[in-house]
Design a protein around this nucleic acid. Structure first.
Lengths: 104, 104
DNA sequence: TTTATTTATCGTATATTTGCGATTAACTAT
DNA sequence: ATAGTTAATCGCAAATATACGATAAATAAA
């Protein structure tokens, strides 16, 4: 959380998290590991095109990735960026990741 | 991160964090403990009215609070909601707060 | 080839966000 | 009472976000 780049990256991640539908999508993906667009359309209270749009935003933010499996698309968390978001957020909130180092 | 309310609350917090200027403000407040609007206007690359607007959004989200000290206004982090945001974010990212319980 | 399935994209409408200068409000100090 | 200081608010413009139905693309199945 020192550099301008970190601040901007954190803001981008946070912005992507700034909608209940997108939080729900990420939560579901984290739980299920992966899923198809259709699975999300089934459980979310918005139209299919709207779900697609939110998926695109999460993908643009780098938080998820899609694997085309025609005619379906399988979405997963992008682990690398997910951890990056985690780290930035923890650093921002002063949460010490090494709390559990517990070397006695 | 179970209820609809938690999801919506987290999204509100995240949305408030979704702009570099607001991240910078919160970071500064966290570091300095408190400060006046003018201090922020001095260090941020936007107009005074724009800073005020971002402060209003952070206040509306509950992340900061202002104490009128005419003609100045002193802003601080709202600790209660700050911790709430921390908790929601940690729970969302599956970060165990009790990692440091380390009871041997 | 036609049909069905799934998802992205387009076009559109509406709402929200962002940023600015100008003004107003609320005080202090003179 | 007047002037000065600080910060919020207003009015505006431009950009972005949100949501939807309709359409298109890409493929599998018939």
């Amino acid at each position: 959380m020192k550099t301008k780049e970190d601040i901007e990256q954190l803001a981008r991640f946070a912005k992507a998290l700034g909608h209940p539908i997108r939080i729900s999508i990420l939560q579901y993906l984290d739980k299920q590991n992966c899923c198809f667009t259709g699975d999300l359309v089934d459980i979310l209270p918005v139209a299919q095109s709207t779900v697609s749009q939110h998926l695109k935003e999460l993908k643009d933010a780098g938080l998820i990735q899609g694997e085309v499996n025609p005619p379906k698309v399988k979405y997963c968390i992008n682990q690398e960026n997910w951890e990056k978001a985690q780290n930035l957020m923890c650093s921002f909130f002063d949460i010490d990741f090494n709390k559990n180092s517990c070397s006695i």
